[in-house]
Design a protein around this nucleic acid. Sequence first.
RNA 1: GGAGGGGUACCAAAGUGGCCAAAUGGAGCGGACUGUAAAUCCGUUGCGGAAUGCUUCGUAGGUUCGAAUCCUACCCCCUCCA
Length: 412
Amino acid sequence: MEELQLTPEQEAEVARQLDVIRRGVAEIVPESELVEKLRHSVATGTPLRVKLGMDPTAADIHLGHTVVLHKVRQLQDLGHRAHLVIGNFTGRIGDPTDKSETRKQLSEDEVQRNAQTYVTQVYKILDPNKTDIVYNADWLGPLNFADVIRLASTLTVARMLEREDFTKRFRENRPIHIHEFFYPLMQAYDSVHLHTDIELGGTDQKFNLLMGRTLQKEFGMPMQIAIMMPLLEGLDGVHKMSKSLGNYIGVDESPNDMFGKMMSIPDDLMFKYYELLSFRRTDEIEAMRSAVASGQTNPRDVKMALAEELVNRFLGPQAVKDAVAHWHQVFQSGAIPEDIEEVQVPAEPVWIVKLLVDCGLAASNSEARRSIGEGAVRINGEKVKDVDLNFTPADGDVLQRGKRQFKRLRLQ
RNA sequence: GGAGGGGUACCAAAGUGGCCAAAUGGAGCGGACUGUAAAUCCGUUGCGGAAUGCUUCGUAGGUUCGAAUCCUACCCCCUCCA
């Protein structure tokens, strides 16, 4: 790229963009080239082409996925254009991970359906006017065997084995199927096809993102910048957010669940979530951080503001109102909530232990007994002390175990 | 095909004849405290209308007064060699 002369205003714009882009990222490879691309973009008024790939393997996205989407959105707000690549071709192979060596092949139908879900969910974050949704089967599908061989010949096995996952499996004598080598190659080819300037992904995507650079160079085109986002920890604050670990917040969850789950994250995690998920400006977040650190602000309120922002984004303002009201009522005041699940019971005396099991508040008689022994069981707010209690339910009675398990009794 | 290692509760992992309904950690549930479902601490976590009761340590048999522990067969997983 030739030396560009930029006006001071343009230089300032480049600096501003760089600042926004840097926020929260794990790594930019290489940053110097990013600066060059930005300068060129600003100088010529050409948006950069940003690529994000998604495999339509699962139907739902959770907050972990939105970290990367969020960064794409920021780039869009800076005037750049995004390609959202639906991996309807690559998805049939599946990105090799150590977890699932052989991923089940998805049918055309499933892929289509999952892709559709993605798209609707994704637009809660991305700017539709600056997003092109493309399907990589459109260009990967037509390649013939000779094309594939040509692609494959640009790489060596040693180079492939640089990928941590492959190395590990190779060392441990676990199988690596040849076709798995093609996954990074195909993803890289997407970048070639789309003339991608910037590709985004999680830190676990590093190898694949860098492969894009390699292949682009091979094709004699400018190399893309790889921007890697940190993997978001899940609710436990330890493991990365994932569906299989059950520590995730889905973008389609009920308002109460989403809000409640947000409120349950460890305090230490709160500002990381802010950094990676919130649309707020960095200085605002920093102000909150110092306010909490100095004890001026209750961390709960800061966390609540984040929960509100996210519920609002994904579920709308009414959902926020509902969720906040519900949360206050149940968790803060400890009062009995309004909308309790109802269970039908006969209008005759029952042994309390049996009642608990019948209502689904305990898995077994033994568990029910234990709970009573722990003083956890209440009827209409009144603690049950006697394990042998026989109790005649009245319509509308509220049976409670612990602080947050309620059932309303309805006579049959 | 050959050699070796292993299958224990929701998960991980001890236990190798009685003190084992089974250590410990995680997770769950409950309680206290708080600022919330955070953190911390404590309790609890097979079933059983509870009895010196019943069933559980891959499956099925056997030895023994007594088996998660010993023996036999079978199933499954892993590693090495081919």
